Amino acid sequence: MMTLEEAEHCFPQINTSCRKHSRPQSESMIISILMSFISLITVVLNLLVIVSISHFRQLHTPTNLLLLSLAVSDFLVGLFVMPFQILLIEPCWFLGALVCVLFYFLTFIIVTASIVNMVLISVDRYVAICDPLRYSTRITQKRVKICVLLCWIYCVFLSFLFLSDNLKKPGRYNSCYGQCVINISGVADLILGFIIPVSTIVILYLRVFVVAVSQARAMRSHITAVKLQSSVTVTVKKSELKAARTLGVVVAVFLMCYCPYYGFSLSGSDIVLGSSTDLFIVFLVFFNSSLNPVIYALFYPWFRKSVKIILTLEILRHSSHQAHIL
């Protein structure tokens, strides 16, 4: 009969096996159910964003292509990262050292892609607000597609750079059998994965905010003689300002979700998923992928219209891709 001490190990038959956490089974079950539900919501909502932007021709704009790339990374977080993260609630990893490294390798690509996509979105809004006359010539669909491709290539490169030692010898940093631990240079990850991208995002959006405020004041000023061309320009600026405000909310939520995790790294603390606090901090990073589609639903009428067409199966009509969404 198995003793109590053996039952506390991941692999009772192996002396070097890792010990299980003493977390109550009810607590572990609640955490698993909650994360599974949020994972499902993340997949469904981001899939709706992907289908909407991909299917409807009116939504094929440079800005929406960046939102599409962001939705793909968020979709992969819900489909791949969150389910595997449930397995890491306990230290017992039953899938082997190689799968452990591959999991972190793909997770690093996906999460870094979300950060770099935020940088691209900030650049797009910066040009649209601060240099609107040359926006259509500087930000084209072709250039945006190239930037999105380079974004994902850059994320793969960083993953190989940071995890090359782990890929050469999986499990080399495990302290006990059944553990899933990798080693990443905290300083390099902090600088390349957070400080530089976030600094870029904050600087660009501060500039956008200053210009947007000045333009809003100009629009409210009493101008008696306005030419037709000027009125068209004002209308365009209003739409750009609205898009900037919406994407500003996306960026703000992104910062709130990511800053606690990297704050720990900046303070020199280690994050271990055995602690409920650390588990919440890591989960908050992934929860950002669930919030982005909710923001779209609240602020983008085109997203609500496209979701209605998708859910009512009108999307199956032959000419549905030409529907008036905007």
Score class of each variant (00 low, 15 high):
residue 1 M to C: 10
residue 2 M to T: 06
residue 5 E to H: 05
residue 6 E to N: 03
residue 10 C to I: 08
residue 14 I to K: 14
residue 17 S to D: 06
residue 21 H to Q: 06
residue 26 S to T: 11
residue 32 S to D: 13
residue 35 M to C: 08
residue 37 F to E: 04
residue 37 F to Q: 05
residue 38 I to Q: 10
residue 39 S to Y: 01
residue 39 S to T: 04
residue 44 V to R: 03
residue 45 L to A: 14
residue 46 N to C: 02
residue 47 L to S: 13
residue 48 L to M: 15
residue 49 V to H: 04
residue 55 H to V: 09
residue 60 H to L: 05
residue 61 T to C: 07
residue 62 P to A: 02
residue 63 T to N: 09
residue 67 L to V: 07
residue 69 S to L: 07
residue 72 V to I: 15
residue 74 D to P: 02
residue 75 F to I: 13
residue 75 F to V: 08
residue 78 G to D: 02
residue 79 L to Y: 01
residue 80 F to P: 00
residue 81 V to T: 00
residue 90 E to A: 06
residue 95 L to F: 15
residue 97 A to D: 15
residue 98 L to E: 12
residue 105 F to R: 05
residue 105 F to A: 13
residue 111 V to N: 00
residue 112 T to Y: 00
residue 123 V to R: 02
residue 124 D to C: 02
residue 127 V to D: 01
residue 128 A to P: 00
residue 131 D to F: 12
residue 136 S to R: 05
residue 137 T to R: 13
residue 138 R to Q: 13
residue 138 R to G: 05
residue 141 Q to M: 10
residue 142 K to Q: 11
residue 143 R to M: 09
residue 145 K to T: 06
residue 149 L to D: 02
residue 149 L to M: 08
residue 152 W to K: 02
residue 156 V to L: 13
residue 157 F to A: 07
residue 157 F to W: 05
residue 159 S to R: 04
residue 160 F to D: 05
residue 161 L to R: 11
residue 161 L to K: 06
residue 164 S to N: 12
residue 169 K to D: 13
residue 172 R to A: 12
residue 172 R to H: 03
residue 179 Q to N: 10
residue 182 I to G: 02
residue 184 I to W: 01
residue 185 S to D: 15
residue 187 V to C: 01
residue 191 I to N: 04
residue 192 L to Y: 02
residue 193 G to W: 00
residue 196 I to R: 04
residue 202 V to H: 03
residue 202 V to C: 04
residue 203 I to K: 07
residue 203 I to L: 14
residue 203 I to Y: 14
residue 206 L to S: 07
residue 207 R to E: 09
residue 207 R to P: 02
residue 210 V to G: 00
residue 211 V to K: 15
residue 213 V to N: 11
residue 215 Q to C: 12
residue 217 R to P: 07
residue 220 R to S: 13
residue 220 R to Q: 01
residue 223 I to E: 14
residue 223 I to V: 13
residue 224 T to Q: 12
residue 225 A to Q: 07
residue 228 L to Q: 11
residue 229 Q to N: 12
residue 230 S to H: 14
residue 234 V to H: 04
residue 240 E to M: 11
residue 241 L to E: 07
residue 241 L to G: 15
residue 248 G to Y: 07
residue 251 V to K: 03
residue 252 A to R: 07
residue 253 V to H: 03
residue 253 V to W: 06
residue 260 P to K: 03
residue 260 P to I: 02
residue 262 Y to N: 01
residue 263 G to C: 08
residue 266 L to G: 10
residue 269 S to D: 12
residue 270 D to L: 09
residue 270 D to Y: 04
residue 273 L to P: 00
residue 279 L to S: 12
residue 279 L to G: 11
residue 283 F to H: 04
residue 290 S to H: 03
residue 295 I to G: 09
residue 296 Y to V: 06
residue 298 L to M: 15
residue 300 Y to N: 13
residue 303 F to Y: 15
residue 305 K to T: 15
residue 306 S to E: 01
residue 308 K to C: 02
residue 313 L to N: 11
residue 316 L to Q: 12
residue 320 S to P: 11
residue 321 H to Y: 14
